[in-house]
Each structure stands twice: as structure tokens, then as C-alpha cells.
Simulated assay, not measured.
Amino acid sequence: MIALADLVRAMNCYYSNIIEGHDTHPVDIERALKNEYSTNAEKRNLQLEAKAHIVLQKWIDEGGLHGRTVSADGVREMHKRFCELLPDELLWVENTDNGERMQVIPGALRERDVKVGQHIAVSPGALPRFFTRFERTYSGLGKAETIIAAAAAHHRLLWIHPFLDGNGRVARLMSHSMLLDVLDTGGIWSIARGLARNVRSYKGHLAQCDLPRRNDLDGRGNLSEESLASFTRFFLETCLDQVKFMEDLVQPDRLRDRILLWVEEEIRADALPQKAGRILEAILYRGELPRGDVPDLLGASDRHSRRVVAALIEHAIVVSESTRAPLRLAFPAKLASRWMPGLFPEQR
């Protein structure tokens, strides 16, 4: 489960980057987590951006934001933790009207007026008041109410647009955290993939939600309630689609067959030693495998067993916290197309 959550975290980061127009493949994200960076400055910056996202989501998945996801402090801390890990080049935005460059301060509410598409965001002076209203509206809800409210909170945070940059990423991670809290998702599915695969509809719905209400039958506030309800349906249907996708993908028998078929092919190609599949099959069945059980499992000497284990670790297929700790299955991004087909595109 931990290894799968790590892979899904990379997937979430990849698709969130795609929405932002940044294409950093999970294989390159995985390299960044090992401090292996491209010599190309632009690609290296995007790897650092992806790594910052992964670090932030891991903190969220481990409960760092539990109980305060929609609080002003929680939202600002997400932004701060993300931006503090970015290279300086990614902490500047340009005013398209006059070309002025403005620095993004981690966790700091913006002090400038901004326009996003046709939407003019609330004035800087009104941000604290809107945050107070936001927190009061979306915190302390029951389970069903929180699931439904996740979509509305997603749009409303983007409409408030509290930061000079990074609002979209923070909103998607906020949604991830809200659903993690009430559904106990385990971090093994993500809304970001569904939104990225339907990005035109996603952005179109958000733009519609920015519009003022049309008449007295369209809610009681300033914004269109009908558009918000439509976005909520789209958002929740996207969530269900992603849950179904991951459910189909990780069915134990199918996952086991895909992994063992790959292992057999690697053994025939002399890329892995004989009987390596027995170790993976045992880990799939048990969850982890004590190293001391390997010789009996393989019917081999301690020396040969260590060689098989070393080969699996070298290929990043299994991991272990120490030379004596149990073996656990890893889900390396380079093998996702075989083990978890459809999770994300092949690397170009």
C-alpha cells in the first residue's frame, strides 16, 4: 500500500503539472526524488517543482493537514511548504498588462489586484474577510456534506485567488486532503488525473462558476448557483471515475498476473535471476518478506538468495529500509506501463 501510494503521489503530481502546462514525466519525477537532476536548467527547475509537490502531498497524506484543510492557516501552510522548495526562477510572475515582474512570497497573501481570464479576483484588502467566510462555510461538516462541499470549496478558493501564483495546485491538494480525511482513501487515487484528462471541461466549469447569477432562480448569492451545482456533479463524477479506474487497476489477481508475467520475460532475457518471481509472489501475498525466509522460499543457499535479492533491489523492484529489514514491493515509475497500464502516458 505504501509503495502504491508513492506511485500515485507521482501520478497526482504529474497530472497537476499537466494542468499547469508543465510536462514532467513520473520517471523524471522519480529521478528528482533521488536527487538526479537534468543538466538542462529548465527541466531541472520542473523536476524541483515536482519534488516540492511530492514532499507537500506526502506531508498531507501522513496527516500534516488533518482537521484544518480549509482553514486559512492550513491553506497558507500548503502554499508556504510548496513554494519554499521551488527554485527562485519559479517564484516570479509577470503582469501581462505592463510586463512588471512580481515575486511570489511563500505563504503570503497577495498584495496586488489580479485578473484570471475574465475573472477579477477579490481585492487584496478583502482577502482576510473572504478567508474567514470560507473557513466558516466549509469546516465542521459531516462526511456526506464534506464530500459534496469539496467541489464548491475547490472553486471558491480559486475564485478568491489568495496568492499571486500556485492557487490551482493548492486548490487541488486541498481537495485531495478533504477527501482523504473523510473517505480514508489511503492516498491510492487522485482527483488530479481525472481533471487533467478532462481539462477543457474542468476549466470551462470553473469559468462558468465565476459568472454572476442570472436571475432569482439561480441562487441567492452573487455567483451562479446553477453553475456551481453543475461543477459539483462534474467533480464528483470525476472522483467516481478515478476510484473505479484504480479499483480495476489494482485487483489483486490481475496485478499479480501482470507483475509475474513481466518477471518471466525479464528472466528469459537474463535481466533477472531464476526464481526471482517467487520473491515477488511471496511479497504480493504477505505484504512483506523477512530476508531470513528467502533461502527456504527459493530452495537455495544463503549466498545465492542474497544475489537474487540484490538483483531485485538494484532494479528498484523491491525495497528495504536496511540490510536486515523485510523486503517490500516497489512500484517504479519506469514499470508503470506494464504493472499499472493507463496510470500515466509512456515517456516520450
Rank of each mutant, 00 (worst) to 15 (best):
E42N: 15
A336Y: 08
L329P: 04
I105C: 08
P252F: 08
K51V: 05
R338N: 06
T146R: 03
T96G: 04
V75M: 09
E49S: 12
P290I: 03
R68L: 09
M78S: 11
S123A: 11
S305Q: 03
P26A: 06
L127K: 07
R220I: 01
L109R: 10
H155L: 00
S224R: 01
Q57H: 05
A311G: 04
E100N: 14
W159Q: 08
L85V: 03
P128V: 12
I259L: 10
M102C: 14
R213K: 11
K115G: 02
L179P: 08
R76W: 02
P26V: 10
Q47L: 08
W92R: 09
R44A: 14
L86D: 00
W339H: 08
D88C: 10
N12P: 09
V309S: 03
R200G: 11
P212L: 02
P124D: 05
C209G: 05
Y15V: 09
K43D: 14
L141G: 02
P162N: 04
P290V: 02
S16D: 05
L236F: 01
K275D: 05
T323F: 05
R268W: 12
S230W: 00
P332I: 08
N45S: 12
S337T: 15
L158C: 01
I279C: 04
E84F: 02
N17M: 07
A152P: 00
E288P: 00
R200Y: 12
A229N: 00
L90K: 10
V114Y: 06
I267W: 05
G168A: 13
W159D: 13
S139T: 15
A144L: 05
S201M: 09
E94P: 10
Q208R: 15
L217H: 03
A153D: 08
R328V: 11
D248M: 14
E265P: 01
I60V: 15
R133L: 12
S16G: 11
G292T: 08
L228S: 01
I120V: 11
V318W: 03
H315E: 15
I60K: 12
R101M: 15
L56C: 12
A336V: 13
D6E: 11
P332L: 09
V55P: 07
A311T: 07
K275A: 14
L33P: 04
H119Y: 11
H22Y: 12
A282L: 10
T146F: 04
K34A: 15
R268D: 14
L85C: 01
C239F: 05
K275S: 14
A336I: 12
L195E: 09
V122G: 06
G299V: 13
D73M: 14
D248E: 15
E145A: 14
R268Q: 13
D216H: 00
I19M: 15
V104M: 05
R44K: 13
E49H: 12
E111S: 15
V182I: 13
D88N: 12
C13E: 14
T69L: 06
L141C: 02
R286P: 02
L272R: 09
R156I: 03
H119Q: 07
A300P: 03
L280Y: 10
G287A: 03
L217K: 00
I54K: 07
F231D: 03
L65M: 15
V170Q: 07
R338T: 02
N45E: 10
V122S: 06
R307W: 10
W92Y: 08
N45L: 07
E247G: 15
H22K: 14
E225C: 00
F131A: 04
R213E: 00
A300W: 00
A330M: 06
P290S: 05
G292W: 03
N12V: 08
